[in-house]
Design a protein around this nucleic acid. Sequence first.
DNA 1: GCCATGCCAAATGTGCACATTTACGTATCA
DNA 2: TGATACGTAAATGTGCACATTTGGCATGGC
Lengths: 251, 251
Amino acid sequence: MATQRRRTGKGSGKRNGKANPAEDEAVYQAILHALLEGKLKAGTKLAEPPLAEIFGVSRERIRKVLHRLGAERRLEMFPNRGARVPRPTLDDVRSVYEAHRVLEAGVLTQLVRHIDDALIDRLNAHLAEERAAATRGDRAASVRLSGAFHVYLVEALGNAELSRFLADLLSRSSVMVSVYEPATDSICAVDEHGAIVEALRTRDLARAIAVSREHFLHVESRLHLDDDAAPAAEDLTSVFAAVKPRRRKAR
Amino acid sequence: MATQRRRTGKGSGKRNGKANPAEDEAVYQAILHALLEGKLKAGTKLAEPPLAEIFGVSRERIRKVLHRLGAERRLEMFPNRGARVPRPTLDDVRSVYEAHRVLEAGVLTQLVRHIDDALIDRLNAHLAEERAAATRGDRAASVRLSGAFHVYLVEALGNAELSRFLADLLSRSSVMVSVYEPATDSICAVDEHGAIVEALRTRDLARAIAVSREHFLHVESRLHLDDDAAPAAEDLTSVFAAVKPRRRKAR
DNA sequence: GCCATGCCAAATGTGCACATTTACGTATCA
DNA sequence: TGATACGTAAATGTGCACATTTGGCATGGC
């Protein structure tokens, strides 16, 4: 078996250098969720030492995660000056929405060529779910299903590149929505989704694109700059208090 | 060894650990270029120690670059087993081409709403360049300008998200082209580009999309699986011989 | 009173020394 | 002879110590 070689010095029961890829993912998911939920105020600095202390992992692990999030443009990285929560401008938000609009126009163009009854049925089933959630006033489900509708459209093409791009856009817009919160009922109106499906069923591409466009403009028009209405916090400890796998003890 | 340290230039610190962020970028660009140029055979393992030796930098530097390339899906990462040059299937290639096709359909849809004479003039000027390169037989310029045409179309929208997505698709397809090399004259036929511009000028969206679609299908049809025709090498030293910033002891 | 300068604590960046895992050659046995 | 087990070398993963940089604060000069 393994020769038990204990490193002298700071062992003291704590796990020293072991491979644990799950820990990376846990920290990554925790910070990502905090970003997506809007729990972190825009401009907040994410320093390595306090995060390492909060999560009870080494600084290098935090470091790796922060750089990964930076590469995904979910954090703003400043050389030698650390990572900060990005402060998206209203133009940034419009850019994401426009990209989603343009993408969906292309998707619809491709869809009308390959659409079949089975897909129409699936989309209608999804619409039924959306309506059910709306009628019973389940706002969380409504928001989720509204986003899922657009995911359905893209995934109907079965193209991994397009699906990935849409997922990126959606996660990005969800962050921004927390800043420029619409705070209205549901993000997407179900009847607009239904109109898109109906246009697809009749292979009316021009109408499908027009409805989709109006739909996105409608959603976009609800955005408004609302600076200090966001309940986001700056205190990292309170933000990550719930998901703390810490092993270290307090000093 | 040599205690001589230069402040300027790339004084590749072997024993001395100094900050040099430009070195990261140099290594990254070198490997990325090798990938884009198709110099690396699909399936080749990129181990850290030999690369560190070749570039004359520390292993951690190589490590960081490899992981970055893995996050960009330009390398295949296997936990505890290193990085390998991906081996794209023909379906992968078709997926990228289809994504490009779908994206451009959306871009054209948006473009016909905002197009003006100045843009038409710029596009025509670009077409003239393409024709000039084609008539003088400059294949390298033809390929470059052909790709730039599609970049022009997207950048006319001024949307950073869409531009980034297209750049990603283009770099990905250029890698794949080296595997499934078309080896024909030019990637894009100039007259097809001209037809797109003409359709845009007359605001004929349906025709623009149809031409674009045919254009992409035309390019895609040239692809063919050509296993061992690729001149890619497996020997890392020879691949990176030209871009070796390594410092010798005494010279 | 205000700006410039220098010092110090904290944070970031990096090389290095291990631990762990994988790959591979060799020996042993059925 | 072939397949399995084993031991060793190499490669990957990680924590740690240290260099470098940054930001703030105090001091002193104008």
